[in-house]
Amino acid sequence: MRALLKMVKVEGTLFLRDSATVIFGVLFPTGLLLGLGAIPALREPSPETGGLRDIDIWAPTALVFGMVMIAVQHVPAVIATYRERGILRRLSTTPAHPRGVLLAQMIVALASVVVSAALMTFLAWAVLDIAPPERPLEFVVAFVVGYAALLGLGMVSAAVVRTSSAANQLGTLLFVALMFFGGAFLPRVVMPDVLREVGEFIPPGLQALTAAWSVEAGQITATAGGQPFWPQIAVMAGIAVTASAVAAKLFRWE
């Protein structure tokens, strides 16, 4: 336990020294939202969306951006580097199992997205007047379970790649795919129904996050054939468990 706490502390310190990840993973989502919020047209209440502004409906996408960045880009790259450079192997000659360093990585990755999300929801409220999550409990559940599903995918990626450069390539590919369903290229609200319905099965689950943040926005982005909130959460939990099991099965320590 003492060793794990020390590892979390050291991995956290190393994370903070990696300025690119801190900027893109933690600070950028807030910057992106504030930047888009500076465009007047996106702050106009629209009668078609029941008086909601585009920025209100789109805000959860910025949140997803930070989560995906850390879970599928940053974490697998660090783990692949640790494997490639014999750091995991070196650890396995000590009483600390290299499992500890993976766990520490995941704890740090969770802490960093929590900070990122807290910063974003606070500034979204303070600067853009986007109300804090209306259903806080559901929001926390959707966030944690959705993130667990993302990290599961990240760990599968870390398990199968051989080198850190392969981890970066696969990470970028996953990032683009996940962010497509995360509404970064095409806002969810304008996606065809079929894409929206598929999107409910894509981590971290944008629809559940949107619905928990703002009930009205959730109604606008939902489709007639879509799943209710809790089944969406169950899907994410299933993905988290399955992906973690696959990652654990495929993981190579050297």
Binding site: R2, K6, M7, V10, L14, R17, R90, T94, P95, A96
Partner: peptide, 20 residues
């Protein structure tokens, strides 16, 4: 064998001593 790029000498030693 190697260690993370950004780890400092004292941090590496303190971390590893906590394993034993």
């Amino acid at each position: 064998s190697s260690f993370p790029d950004a780890i400092k000498v004292a941090e590496a030693l303190e971390l590893h001593s906590s394993f034993y």
